[in-house]
Write a protein that binds this DNA or RNA. Structure first.
Lengths: 316, 316
DNA sequence: TCAACGCGTGGGCATATGCTCAAGAGCGCG
DNA sequence: CGCGCTCTTGAGCATATGCCCACGCGTTGA
């Protein structure tokens, strides 16, 4: 009898689910049709869901992205994750993720209460800043996580922090230091001087960190952009470097290396594990190991990437 | 640009739909996530539905039944239709539909305000009456649409009206006439006499008519039960009879025949087209043409059948 | 056989949802 | 370049939904 009742109950649940989701009736109507109280109709609909009698299928490319984002969030315990559809025309395009990053920045900066946004390196981050909707927020603060003086002493060719400050009227804190110092001692000396300490202090209170993720291979962006030499790059790769965030190289487990350029790097070190909302933005097959390592090492707790990259990360 | 916006809007709709149906968030949460007002989030979810970006799949045998019922309702403009799952163990079993008919009767009789229920012939109807939940409704009325005196003068072996009256305390109006009279004249005379006219008057005000549907072939129930002779049956078949409701034979278009036993029949004639809620109850491959004809001729405006039969009717 | 337990039920309330209305922004036509 | 038009937005309200509680029926175990 129990089995019989059970079956009949599931039948009714299925009926209720059908009437609710497919026929589009209200639970009141369903209650009348099935001759039960509205409360029971509601229970039947829930039961239908709980027993997975009904499934939803979203016929749209976005569905896969949402699914991937949910999986990444789950697997790496992320507080934020977005996966944008891969653009078949330009598989490596950062446009999509830049758009989402800009959106994230917009949302953060829209706040009336003062917020502190810290920016790292990366093409996506730079492109995102360009797309931020101008808004007047003089009480916000924008802080750089990396030195904006390149090797030759000029200001970095692209002043991300300054640009974002322009668009918001926020106070900004560029980091008036070269990317690398000549020695560990000198680095340690420099980061203690007043202006730098101030930047560091502001960065420490950041509400959002948005950082790019670079792979450590022959085409590493930090090398291409001239921040590290070929020899320095290779040395780090020998030490096991697989990726970098704001210049900080880490290995395949996401552990920051205590060697090579990391010793002379002026960038503000990542929190490990990330507590502040720290969003990594990166796409491309070449970056997959670097992104995966950063996720595994909890160097970031948020990710914005594209469908192809997301899938590759999950398939590792 | 319009296309671009359109696409982006659908993307958002898909995202919203995913978050709502699959991730189970509220529209408020979705609004925050997508950086729009709650109203817009609601619009996106509706849009997702309207554009059929999302589809529901009910993984349960009931789903097919609901679908078939909806199709029958649509096709034949029915006010009520139920399709029960076919029982693989007993394809012709009336148990399922009897259950549903009983349910329908329960629902109707539960009403506090007086209702009139008219009953026709059929195994399903008889079985349904047996399953009706006893309930005290002395102000209801139960009326028979068919004569309950069989050829030999005894009361019909199964007094459906009486049984239902027993279970409800309702007044009941059996029809104290033989199924067939010996001639058209005699029939016309009899239906005018007081007790019969009274039954007819009550039946005319019925709130619900529940009738069986019989096929007109060698195994026709009215013949098997001895109400019509083999010759009478064959004569009606020659006249094009394909089915009968309360003994009234009709052709494949659902038109009542004006010949043969129909002229001597004491049963209360069906309304054509049915205005009163008139539910036909029948299952079985043999009855498919009869049911389909009754539907086409609007002899009934409601149907209770099983999955196999429903499918066969729709496939004609 | 009786009492205790559990499950389903129905009423009622806080919340979520759907929809309407007035207003604003973007767009096209003149 | 301006006007009007349409499309979309956001607030607010009526309704639907989800959930909690107390109750009643059926079942189980002593």
């Amino acid at each position: 009898m129990a089995a019989e009742n059970e079956k009949s109950r599931l039948d009714d649940a299925a009926r209720a689910g059908w009437l609710y989701f497919i026929a589009g009736h209200t639970q009141d109507e369903i209650a009348k049709m099935l001759q039960v109280s509205r409360a029971s109709a509601q229970r039947l609909v829930s039961l239908c869901l709980a027993e997975r009698l009904i499934t939803f299928r979203l016929e749209h490319p976005i569905a896969a992205c949402m699914e991937l984002a949910a999986q990444l969030k789950e697997r790496f315990d992320l507080s934020h994750c977005e996966v944008v559809p891969a653009d078949p025309a330009a598989p490596q395009a950062t446009a999509g993720i830049a758009e989402r990053c800009a959106n994230l920045l917009d949302a953060t900066l829209r706040s009336e209460t003062p917020v502190i946004v810290a920016l790292g390196t990366g093409r996506a981050v730079r492109a995102a800043v360009e797309r931020v909707t101008p808004i007047d927020r003089p009480n916000h603060q924008i802080v750089s996580l990396v030195g904006n003086i390149s090797a030759d002493g000029s200001a970095s060719f692209y002043d991300t922090v300054g640009r974002l400050a322009d668009r918001t009227g926020a106070r900004h804190y560029p980091m008036p230091l070269p990317f690398l110092m000549s020695s560990e001692d000198e680095r340690n000396k420099m980061v203690r001087i007043e202006p730098i300490a101030k930047v560091k202090a502001v960065a420490a209170k950041a509400d959002l960190r948005l950082v790019g993720i670079g792979q450590m291979d022959q085409k590493a962006q930090i090398h291409v952009d001239g921040f590290v030499t070929r020899d320095e790059l290779f040395e780090m790769m020998r030490q096991g470097a697989i990726g970098e965030i704001t210049g900080w190289a880490y290995d395949s487990k996401g552990r920051l290396l205590k060697a090579g350029t990391n010793k002379r790097l002026t960038s503000i070190p990542p929190e490990v594990p990330a507590r502040t909302t720290t969003i990594g933005a990166a796409v491309g097959a070449a970056k997959v190991p670097a992104i995966a390592a950063a996720l595994n090492g909890a160097l970031i707790n948020g990710l914005i990437t594209d469908e192809t990259t997301a899938r590759a990360i999950l398939e590792r």
